[in-house]
Write a protein that binds this DNA or RNA. Sequence first.
DNA 1: ACCTGAACACCGTTCAAGT
DNA 2: ACCTGAACACCGTTCAAGT
Lengths: 192, 192
Amino acid sequence: VSPARARTSLEEIVAAGRALLESGGVDAITMQAVAERVGVRGPSLYKRIPSRAALIAAIAGDVLDELGRRLAPHTGLADPAVAIRAVAAEYRAFAHERPRAYELAWSHLSEAARPPVTVSVRAADPVIALMERVVGPDDALPAARLLTAFAHGFVSMELAGAFRLGGDVDVAYDFGVERLIDALLRAPQRGA
Amino acid sequence: VSPARARTSLEEIVAAGRALLESGGVDAITMQAVAERVGVRGPSLYKRIPSRAALIAAIAGDVLDELGRRLAPHTGLADPAVAIRAVAAEYRAFAHERPRAYELAWSHLSEAARPPVTVSVRAADPVIALMERVVGPDDALPAARLLTAFAHGFVSMELAGAFRLGGDVDVAYDFGVERLIDALLRAPQRGA
DNA sequence: ACCTGAACACCGTTCAAGT
DNA sequence: ACCTGAACACCGTTCAAGT
């Protein structure tokens, strides 16, 4: 008797989930739909992932990983102001390309980042290094939080449809980024 | 034959939903649980609200209304810097008091704010008026978006557990608020 | 005009039985 | 070791029948 051999993998399952998310929203990520996409029956998924909630969390982690990989290159640019502009633009571009993925990643971050703390760290690290060059080591962390809070807040409001009072949204984003660059570059360099 | 008289109302239903949200999270908002809380059977809810999704949206709208009512008083303070500090502090305080309500409101804003555009407008209006005093009419809208994007982004990252790199989170919020006040007060007054 | 029980479709999850 | 069909509990929603 030959024991059944694995017909799918966790990566395939997560990829199937992301595909379903992109085409039909979070509600389209059902265990049966995922199973069908990877060529297996629903119950078999539980050999690879303990629950639908865990699958959603894994998808969120995958999205954040991708975002981190896209931001990293821009953080190293020589001129800090140019680097900040580039990171901010790339951040927003990612959210526009994958709006449902971006929203899911944030709404399920708490569960997603629990087991692999490294996920969020990996994404945040280069940004903090960039801020260290701008405001010095003592304020690097709060400065990074200011920048990412603005970027995330703006983009998530935008995706949620909160900007319905007219006005050019692109202009508003640039306005915010430039004011932040001003504020951070003008801040006294504290620490080492 | 006396026709059955109404045994509940939409307001009661929304209130029941918020109570369930507070005690057990979004998943605890089931139609049966809401019905039980208002003293009725599940199917009867559909006389007042077309679907669970609509109920969630109504709850989100209710939360945003409450947030708007809490921010409004602070926007009128004489000194603009003081006003900005007060609004920012109140905003974060609300999110800390009702974390699940705050998260639900934002994750379902798109549906929530669709029918009553006034909801989001009512909340945003006083903040824009405040910004008009700070940067002038031409930049008031982008300035308001900068401020609210930071506040929402910071608070939602905080609630999602994104700040796990240590550091004092209160200090980081103050750092951000003060830098924004600096940046906005120093900006040239444009328009009228 | 609103309320109800019964019923339906759908979904997450478990498990005994297969290979 | 993994796969499957069958079964269970739970949930949103519909509807015919009641008052």
